[in-house]
Design a binder for these strands. Structure first.
Lengths: 233, 233
DNA sequence: CGCCTCGTAGTGGTCGGACCACTTGACTGG
DNA sequence: CCAGTCAAGTGGTCCGACCACTACGAGGCG
């Protein structure tokens, strides 16, 4: 009997597909521990080095998690785990690509905010207000940034779609850094952001999806237009 | 003088960040060739094995491309390259997560189709029609699937946002497989899909964004509801 | 008896070196 | 001048050793 696999691509690639298949077919459950690297390598008939590369690859994808001294585990396979690399995309994108990313964010964020307006609970709304207040109470850029992110994350989460929230999270990191620059270059940006955030909050409190959608779209579109102008000029 | 980096996490992780930084800072241009693995390893003071893991990690992220016998190159860093892992997310998602992914797809696809209706050229519209005709001319599931994918890809591309098109591409692979199952289980699904595609095409030809948005949303929502029902029952 | 400490086996993390498979380009012979 | 050949260099794979850390149980202490 042959080994079955007649060499497709590199051995490492084959190992990656193999492990992915195990998970996709349910042979490996989220949170479950995998065999040791040494055994996995032996089982697939490859060296430990190659197997390690495969594990590393799946680790950066957020599929596996290696704990030093303990073992290799399947992650919870939740949206946040798998979409972590999405942030890298945002970090490495430049110029026109960044505008495209912002456009995607505008579409998703406006919809998410609209959904949130319809579904948000009083508790979550209070959390949103807390971040809004904290954001207005300080003038430390770093702190503002943190609460700004949390503000939007809370809203996206309230929309009831964790996958969408995770994607928006990834789309934000780079974006918000750009906004910091902007704050330095263009006076009044902070004040405008404050007004826009207030408008979003008002729409949420009023449970008005359409107003929320419009406010969120305007908020992101604001940055988008500014960036577009930067590239054109 | 110290080496500067006081050991943050694993050496491999450090190497990954290092290379990513090189690209983010523009020290490495898209398409450019990197130093050899051996030299990179020596430059960061780590072993070649560890460096190889770093390169492998960046390779699966679509940032680098290793050509056997030739060297390591930075990819074009286009949306398609970086968002390839997005398909993995779709492949590994199950149950409620899949519904969430479809919801994201519905939002993006409907908007993309609306944009396409406003911007599509006659040439691209002809290409869309070609896939539509090919899809209706055969009854081989595999071929239908291929043209179905191409149909939507063409539309997403016509929307003028390659990033969005790439994301939609990733969101589709798994989705469409589910639809194949569906075709087997539920008679009339093909006919309904055919009607929905026709409606989308009609809206595109009429350059009617709102109609296009509605048709696309209904198209994806159809699958979404079916899947939701599957999970509930 | 119960808790705490310490040792130890086992795991992932790193290393160095050897060899293989493939690409590339210069060199050689026609 | 061209085609074929060959050698240097690159990524791909493998091996075996050792390090760093974790987990868990044996043993000691209270």
């Amino acid at each position: 009997m042959d080994e079955g696999a007649p060499q497709k691509g590199t051995v490492t690639q084959r190992a990656i597909e193999e492990i992915k298949a195990m998970i996709a077919e349910g042979r490996l459950e989220p949170g479950q521990r995998l065999p040791t690297e040494r055994e996995l390598a032996a089982r697939l008939g490859i060296s430990r080095s190659s197997m390690r590369e495969a594990v590393r690859a799946l680790t950066v994808m957020g599929v596996l998690e290696a704990r030093h001294g303990s073992g290799i585990y399947v992650t919870a396979l939740e949206a946040g785990d798998l979409l972590e690399t999405f942030g890298v995309v945002a970090d490495l994108s430049r110029g026109p690509r960044l505008v495209e990313l912002l456009e995607v964010r505008r579409i998703l964020e406006s919809t998410a905010t609209a959904l949130a307006a319809a579904r948000i609970t009083d508790d979550r709304l209070a959390a949103v207000e807390k971040h809004l207040a904290a954001m207005n109470a300080t003038d430390d850029p770093e702190e503002i940034l943190a609460h700004d992110l949390a503000f939007h994350r809370e809203i996206a989460s309230a929309a009831g779609n964790e996958t969408m929230a995770a994607i928006l999270d990834g789309l934000s990191s780079r974006t918000f850094r750009a906004r910091v620059w902007r704050g330095y270059q263009e006076e009044g940006a902070f004040a405008r952001t404050r007004r826009e955030h207030a408008a979003i909050h008002r729409a949420l409190a009023a449970r008005d999806p359409e107003a929320a959608r419009a406010a969120a779209a305007a908020h992101v579109g604001e940055v988008e237009e500014w960036l577009r102008a930067q590239l054109g000029g």
